[in-house]
Design a protein around this nucleic acid. Structure first.
Lengths: 206, 206, 206, 206
DNA sequence: TATGAATGAGTCTTCATTCAT
DNA sequence: CATGAATGAAGACTCATTCAT
């Protein structure tokens, strides 16, 4: 770590700069939303010219894309780790859902970017390229529910329906909390517990 | 009704024009979001100059406001009607949630506008002014759940927690379906049934 | 004078309406300046649609023109009356200048419109058409100063120079008071007196 | 210095560009007034896009501000230099007024901007920020007149009144010449001489 | 005479992006 | 790798004016 001589940031190797930009961008996306996060704001935050961002990223969307992929990578890691644990399938389902909600609540900006933005057919947006990681994450979760179904413990419907329904419910908790921060919500922990208790008690037989 | 001779549109008495604008605006707001829905796009869609919009609405936000209020008014009417029905509280809860999801799925544009856009502290936005109608709608629902709690039939938590959790779960179903239309979802009916069955079976005692 | 039945103004004969518009326009010109006085503001003030103004005036400039002419007509009347008075020429000069300043200070909006706006060669603006009345007003004044010069009482220069110089000095008093209303000026009366005393004492021999 | 190959302007190091913009802006402000001087006109005059102006100035008002300050700085320098000269107070008064009028006549653009535009209470405009330089300039002049009054040589009124009256008269000369360039004025030198002679002869005792 | 609806040109300003250095 | 200067397109909104009724 050499001391930078100028007021500007040390122009170290590009990797640091890239990460720095991503960090700043994510923060601003959180604060100002998708449209509010302009290339200039990001550049100012990092302390470089706006042109400089184009050294590291093709365009604004690519920055978004990378942020989304970062988020999804974490989710995938979570699910992968949980699916390895030698515990009851219900427990694994519960853990995955809990981890999902925890991540969303703790990374609201990334979450909104990935899960609350519409993905149209054009698939140009930043969310689309998450697809691969997203699919794997979803599959990890689906396979546990399928395991559960294989044990004949689903009270209603099939594995696919159960998988999607559980995801949806948990998504609703995170999404509504994020988009309506001023509403007088009960504590997140309480809500999450109530939701998982109800859903799993209602859905799964012992 | 004579045919207009000039290039100008001559489309009746202005009430029609207003409604036409609202319709176009809603579609665009849904498609392109709050910031992406520009006055120009709306005007183009309607086929008039952008200036013309200012004859009918004070500014962009007023257009949004009216759309949101329209949506909320319907939801409120739904809940009001259901709460009058002389049937079991659980049945009313179920009906309200089902009506909520139905509305959302059938009016994705309006739903997204009201429930998927972030409402920040500034509260200047169009969504905020829905508050009054929104509060009443929420209260109608909460009072049924409270009735249920009063009968001692909640397996977990209190009425407030249950109210919010149920809302959140159903919101998740609608929201995810809307924002990810290309995902291979099970049928909406199936998912809604599974969700309500599980939630209510898990949450409520007979 | 019939009572108007509607909330709108009685749609009496056009002369009243014209005058009404001019009055409203002048007030707004005073308040908001030349560019700030929009056709809509005037129409709103009068209580008619903006289109209605075009019934009475060709365009915005014509309204301005008429206001200016009204102002100049008063000035001309002043000077005409004073020049008829059988008193010393110096007294008449003094009275004209005093009347000029009084008018300007009491009708700042009109004054600015006529005397503080640049009149370019194009002569399209509203100020230009005042020319006729303006010329006469100027001539009335010049002839008194010429009379004075004829009596050999001008200490410096010729009649033309004296005429212009006196006008300019008095214009400066009015103009600066109007454009800098917040400056801590001495009272207008005091300043006017000091100016006329000095100028005439310095310029004219007994 | 190679010739630029592209259509873009490549005009040195930006300082030049700034000055170029100021020059163009001043001319246009003078011609078309405060509201009439639009960003686009200025940009067109300079030969760049309107966006380019925002690289050099925060907004339209900042351009105005700089122009005004430039003008006032010169006036202040004039008065400061004159007040240092070891000559009779009357001579210094006369020199200051003469310099004032000369500046105004030679820089009509700047003069009108600073002295002929209304400064309302809001005080947001560009002219207001001249205040500091303006005040100092005024004070330099006032102190000479006060010196004169201290010597008991004012025939009428007090120092404040005399100061303001003198300023006003000279302002009138400049202002009217500027706003009515087509009028058949006597030569500026002649008028200025007549005015100073009369005023000072009338106001000051030997 | 009057109007509501409409328009095209214009206002300032901001955006993502590019070019030459 | 980085920059300052520049751009065209677009943002919301206002203006004077006109058209059909």
């Amino acid at each position: 770590m050499e001391k930078p001589r100028s007021a500007r940031k040390a122009k170290g190797d590009g990797h640091l700069r890239r990460a720095e930009i991503l960090r700043a961008a994510e923060a601003i996306f959180v604060r100002d939303g998708h449209e509010g996060a302009t290339i200039r704001k990001i550049a100012d935050e990092v302390g470089v010219s706006s042109t400089a961002l184009y050294m590291h990223f093709r365009d604004k969307d690519q920055i978004l894309r990378e942020i989304c992929q970062g988020a999804m990578a974490i989710m995938l890691a979570n699910n992968t780790e949980i699916s390895r644990q030698p515990i009851d399938a219900v427990a694994r389902v519960r853990m995955m859902l809990q981890a999902y909600m925890d991540f969303g609540l703790q990374n609201p900006n990334a979450y909104r970017l990935v899960f609350c933005n519409t993905v149209d057919e054009a698939a140009t947006g930043p969310t689309e390229l998450v697809g691969d990681l997203g699919s794997q994450t979803y599959e990890r979760f689906e396979s546990v529910v399928t395991e559960l179904a294989g044990e004949g413990r689903l009270r209603y419907g099939d594995a696919r329906t159960a998988t999607q329904m559980l995801w949806m419910a948990c998504h609703g908790l995170v999404a509504l909390r994020i988009t309506r921060p001023t509403f007088e919500w009960q504590s997140a922990a309480e809500l999450a517990a109530a939701m998982l208790d109800s859903l799993l008690h209602g859905l799964v037989t012992d």
